[in-house]
Amino acid sequence: MNKLVSIGIVVIGRNEGERLKLCLQSVRKAKCKVVYVDSDSKDGSAEFADSLGISVVRLNDDKPINAAIARNAGFKQITSESPELEFIHFIDADCELNAGWLKHALTVLTDDDKLSAVCGRLREKNVKESIYTQLCDMSWYIRPGIIDSCGGIATIKVDIFKQFNGFNETLIAGEEPEFYSRVREKGYTVRCLDIAMGTHDCAMVSFKQWWMRTVKTGFGFANGSQWGAWNKRQHSILIWVLLIPITILCGSIIEPWLLISALIFPIQILKIGIKSTIPYSFKDKLLDATFCIFAKLPQFVGMVKYQVSRFSKEQNKNIEYKA
């Protein structure tokens, strides 16, 4: 029996253009049910998917749009059209699926009743395009084995997704770890396989794009307070953005030589680089460590943005970084 007949693929996207075309070409090779969820694209994305005979769910901007809402909508559509499906693979329209991933994923999932979902190695497609694509590639790395959460690209059991009511639609970032935290609380596991899952094209070539993407991360950290997550990360951001700089500034006003204490920043970067276990060169690790520290500033902006959004009732309004 062909196991792939029991799996469907949900693609979500917004104005991804050529990236969407490459994504749909890659998933169609799997020869299984595909649904595309379009988040109010203006570039003809929905029409292109229609032309391929793919079922399209159109979301419009009369209400908030985010990845959680799109994935839930795609899951609802694909399971209503094909109620026999046992597994769903979620993928974003800026990604391409590795040809052998689904067979590996289904073999592992069917062999373990307590395993809820699996993900694999995701690589940045144009990793050498800019330092930002290099950073993105490093951020995708997950050590193989039992993990706390998959990202948005993952293969999951249908009954698990139904049992836990999908992703929290009030979260514009961090919806995956929130979902898997609920799953793990009930004794299910999540695993990263040491197998290529696909490629991602962040198209991130400017500092502004990196900044906005990192602001969104900080927004997600603050949003995590709703479900008791990332308090340590928020504390770390406040320490490095506010407490340490203010302490150095105040100290140097009294004793100018205390400005030397600003060396704590490069020292911390070196410390992170040395301790890093990601499978990259030491030069790459230092690049990652440098931006890890600098990222705390836009992350702080994101935390502030979240607090402001609570009063404007726009907590689930998406933050975009792509042109």
Score class of each variant (00 low, 15 high):
Ile239Phe: 12
Gln226Cys: 10
Phe221Lys: 02
Ile244Val: 14
Ile239Arg: 04
Ile239Ser: 04
Ile244Thr: 11
Phe219Lys: 06
Ile239Pro: 02
Thr247Ile: 15
Cys250Glu: 08
Ile237Phe: 00
Ala222Gly: 03
Gln226Glu: 08
Gly224Pro: 03
Thr247Leu: 15
Trp227Gln: 15
His235Lys: 10
Leu238Asn: 01
Val241Ile: 14
Arg233Leu: 03
Gly218Asn: 05
Val241Phe: 06
Ile248Val: 15
Cys250Trp: 10
Lys232Asn: 14
Gln234Cys: 08
Gly224Glu: 00
Ile244Pro: 06
Phe219Ala: 02
Asn223Trp: 01
Ala222Lys: 03
Gly224Lys: 03
Asn231Ile: 04
Ala222Pro: 02
Asn223Leu: 11
Gly218Met: 01
Gln234Ser: 06
Ile244Gly: 06
Arg233Met: 03
Lys232Ile: 12
Ile248Gln: 07
Leu249Phe: 14
Cys250Ile: 14
Ser225Ala: 14
Ile239Lys: 09
Gly224Phe: 01
Ile244Ser: 07
Phe219Met: 05
Asn223Ser: 14
Gly228Thr: 13
Arg233Glu: 07
Ile239Met: 09
Leu249Asn: 07
Leu243His: 08
His235Ser: 10
Gly228Asn: 15
Trp227Met: 11
Phe221Met: 03
Val241Arg: 03
His235Asn: 07
Ser225Cys: 13
Val241Leu: 09
Lys232Pro: 03
Ser225Met: 11
Ile237Thr: 07
Gly224Asp: 07
Gly220Ser: 07
Ser236Thr: 13
Val241Ser: 09
Cys250Asp: 11
Trp240Arg: 00
Leu249Cys: 12
Gly218Val: 01
Thr247Glu: 05
Lys232Ser: 13
Asn231Glu: 09
Ser236Gly: 09
Gln226Ile: 10
His235Thr: 13
Gln234Thr: 02
Gly228His: 14
Lys232Val: 15
Val241Pro: 05
Gln234Arg: 12
Gly224Asn: 04
Gly228Lys: 15
Cys250Phe: 12
Phe221Leu: 10
Gln226Leu: 15
Gly218Cys: 02
Ser225Asp: 10
Ile246His: 08
Arg233Gln: 13
Ser236Ala: 14
Gly228Asp: 13
Asn223Val: 02
Ala222Arg: 04
Gln226Gly: 10
Gly218Trp: 00
Pro245Thr: 05
Ala222Leu: 08
Trp227Leu: 09
Asn231Leu: 04
Ile248Arg: 02
Asn231Pro: 01
Cys250Ser: 13
Ser225Gln: 11
Ile246Ser: 14
Cys250Gly: 12
Ile239Tyr: 06
Ser236Phe: 04
Ile246Cys: 15
Thr247Phe: 13
Ser225Arg: 12
Leu249Gly: 11
Pro245Gln: 08
His235Gly: 05
Gln234Val: 01
Phe219Pro: 01
Ile244Tyr: 10
Gly218Lys: 00
Pro245Ile: 08
Gly224Trp: 02
Gly224Leu: 08
Cys250Met: 14
Ala229Val: 03
Thr247Cys: 15
Ser225Phe: 10
